[in-house]
Design a protein around this nucleic acid. Structure first.
Length: 270
DNA sequence: AAATTCTCCTGAAGGC
DNA sequence: TGCCTTCAGGAGAATT
């Protein structure tokens, strides 16, 4: 599933193809996504020029003179650049036609989104309450420690809360907590500043190395095949229930925290 | 206010 | 082989 690293990889992959390009038309085949795409979006988008391709959290933001297009890949979404016509499959919900190339959105589970806003994106309801980007200096130990003060929620749910920090999905939450030796179930308000400093750098480390893997996907971005190696990430605990802990050898445990599968070592993580 | 539960959807995996 | 059930998951909305 697209995590922040893959959204960033997608951004870098599509940007050179669509920056400065004029939208000939939006072909909307399936408007029922996470939110129903307004029927007038194709007419609003026609003729707009893409001036910027940015990312905020897991949202892709295509800036045009008339407004901004927000795209979210949800659980199963992907964007591809097509340079020649290719018959759409059943889950190819929209194409943005730039004349000599298309940006095609595919999303089998339809948890993704396509939205349009004419207001500044920073004030958009979906973005305004978002916490800092994980790879920015705004995410640091003191910040997390301060945010967690007085709260009793499990630290894993805490770091997956987009109001605290964005882009830490279920997989990377387990990985970052393992790297920093913190038990995912520990109340977030009962963790020292020093441990939060370690957690902040673990989050950055795990996301940064995943972005570097995303670079592999980037190279054959045009391939039909999808994401070679994407699932072959060096995961230490995620999905490894029963496997030996890479550090101490005890079996990795699995438990649901906040309706999400969580993986950890009960000896190495306290 | 904070925390938990519900919801959208379909492909994959497991059971029989 | 194939049908049926269960589960996973991002994140906003609803509920407690």
């Amino acid at each position: 599933m697209p995590e922040l690293p893959e959204v960033e990889t997608t951004r870098r992959g599509v940007a050179p193809h669509i920056l400065g390009r004029r939208v000939e038309r939006l072909i909307l085949r399936q408007p029922k996504l996470r939110w129903t795409v307004p029927a007038d979006l194709p007419s609003r988008l026609r003729g707009q020029t893409v001036q910027s391709v940015e990312r905020r959290a897991k949202y892709l933001l295509l800036g045009t003179p008339g407004g901004t297009l927000l795209i979210h890949l949800g659980m199963s979404g992907s964007l591809r650049i097509l340079t020649e016509s290719c018959a759409p499959g059943p889950h190819d919900h929209f194409d943005i036609d730039f004349g000599d190339c298309y940006l095609r959105f595919r999303d089998p589970r339809r948890f993704g989104a396509l939205l349009w806003t004419t207001a500044p994106t920073a004030s958009h309801p979906l973005l305004v309450h978002l916490g800092p980007e994980p790879l920015s200096d705004d995410l640091n130990g003191p910040y997390l420690h301060r945010c967690a003060r007085g709260r009793r929620t499990a630290v894993k749910s805490f770091i997956m809360d987009g109001r605290v920090v964005v882009g830490v999905g279920n997989i990377y939450a387990s990985e970052a907590l393992f790297l920093s030796g913190i038990h995912p179930h520990r109340p977030c308000g009962r963790i020292s500043l020093v441990r939060y400093q370690r957690l902040a750098s673990s989050i950055k480390q795990v996301l940064q190395s995943a972005i570097e893997q995303g670079g592999t996907t980037l190279r054959d971005f045009h391939n039909q095949a999808g994401n070679p190696g994407y699932f072959a990430r060096q995961l230490r605990v995620y999905g490894k229930s029963g496997d030996p802990c890479p550090s101490c050898g005890l079996p990795i445990r699995q438990r649901r925290i906040g309706q999400r599968s969580s993986f950890f070592c009960s000896k190495c993580q306290r």
